[in-house]
Design a protein around this nucleic acid. Structure first.
Lengths: 242, 242
DNA sequence: TCCGCCGCTGATTCGAGAATCAACGAGACG
DNA sequence: CGTCTCGTTGATTCTCGAATCAGCGGCGGA
């Protein structure tokens, strides 16, 4: 968007730029039509380039979609890894990973949607090793849980891989609520949801604590039930376009 | 499987039987190749019928796949509803729904895989109203949670829909572990996993209690860590073929 | 036993979209 | 300023699978 052809870029940079443009367009189309449903022609049109150019940058459809997935997923993975390395105690780690996931969604709902809707779902034949990616996060997280168990921060009888699955399953489905529009994509809603995910995972539904500052809200009846969006007018209508 | 053509059935019943055969075949192929990836020819071959017959029973591909989804999903929904109506207190409801889900997986892994891999994931254009189905369960469960809140069994500050999402997200991802082969599909593993799902959801990872009878196991070192399957030969290479 | 209906067959048709390729022209380089 | 390179174009070709349809034969009824 920003750079029109006005700015002269050296050959190589212009090329890399093109490639990224196509990749972005692919994410866009992919998020609308799904892995199998999208046509190369759509991607080309979305990117504003000729049909054939897509094949100049990517061997075939599989490679294109593979790249889309790859770049999104590795970005997410590295953010998660970074978050984990910044924190030392278990609760903080859990909190920061959830934070990363929600932040990613806030930043790029489309991209997250693509990842959510495709990871681990689709025929084993596909070029993209989604199954492998799925396995990776699960095992990364499982390592964290196993470590927490050794530190005595977590009951020893839990299976770490399963704990990891419950963790990411919660995050994924929570984000799915937003993706499908059951919850409104609004900052305050996202924040409270994030807290509830963390609390429920750590302490269970029965003992989940309210979001920090929720007490204040509790005292103010007019803002009492932010979930049910009493006054529809406020921000409402976030530009739905998924 | 059981009935060959030996047993003479009245016309109408034979037809209904055929229809079911095709539906079953569709589930099978569908679970292998995915919604978009499967070809009608595959379904016909799998069912052992002529290509054209598929079109005799189903208007087109979409209707076929819609029926597959519909029948599986409605069966699941009614079991869930039944389970809910049998129990009165909150914990029991949670436990029994998880039980239903795991039981469904035990009975028909392929079918569950299809539901898991397709529900809520795919372009909104699809004939099947998967999104609607997804919304349905979430809202069914949300009702249960809201009711529990009124009974004081659950903190009032939780958003019921989100709680429902966390609940089903946990179940789904737990089953996914089995579907992709990260956990072995064995009765004892399934049982323990089921308990851990319930416990983690109700009380959180930090306070999840061991499975009933785990204490007994705890006392017996040889059976100590069934998760990590000390003796390697046991689990290893689960016959990946989903 | 014979007739006619209709469940069933699978080769054929048809369209959609993936992948190719020959040609064009803008920038690089002398 | 001319030429050459290569990014770019989009019509063309080719593949693959959805949907059709004309006819066959098993089954039930008379």
């Amino acid at each position: 968007m920003a750079t029109r052809k006005v700015t002269k870029l050296p050959r190589s940079e212009r090329e890399a730029e093109r490639r990224k443009t196509i990749l972005r367009a692919a994410v866009e189309v992919f998020s609308r039509k799904g892995y199998q449903g999208c046509r190369i022609a759509d991607v080309a049109k979305e990117a504003g380039v000729a049909y054939g150019l897509v094949y100049h940058y990517f061997k075939d459809k599989d490679e294109l979609l593979g790249s889309v997935f790859e770049s999104g997923w590795s970005a997410f993975l590295s953010r998660v890894a970074a978050a984990l390395s910044h924190e030392s105690d278990f609760e903080a780690k859990v909190r920061s990973v959830v934070h990363v996931a929600f932040e990613a969604y806030r930043r790029d709902p489309r991209g997250v949607k693509v990842l959510i809707l495709e990871v681990g779902r689709s025929p084993s034949g596909g070029a993209v090793n989604r199954g492998g990616a799925f396995t990776n996060v699960i095992e990364l997280a499982a390592g964290v849980f196993a470590h927490a168990q050794q530190q005595g921060e977590l009951p020893a009888h839990l299976e770490p891989k399963l704990a990891a699955a419950l963790f990411f399953g919660s995050i994924e489905m929570a984000l799915t609520l937003f993706v499908v529009g059951l919850l409104e994509r609004r900052d305050d809603v996202l924040d409270r949801a994030r807290d509830q995910v963390v609390e429920t995972f750590l302490r269970g539904v029965e003992h989940a604590r309210p979001s920090p500052g929720a007490a204040a809200v509790e005292a103010n009846p007019s803002e009492a039930a932010p979930w049910t969006s009493a006054k529809s007018g406020t921000k409402s209508r976030v530009a739905r376009r998924d």
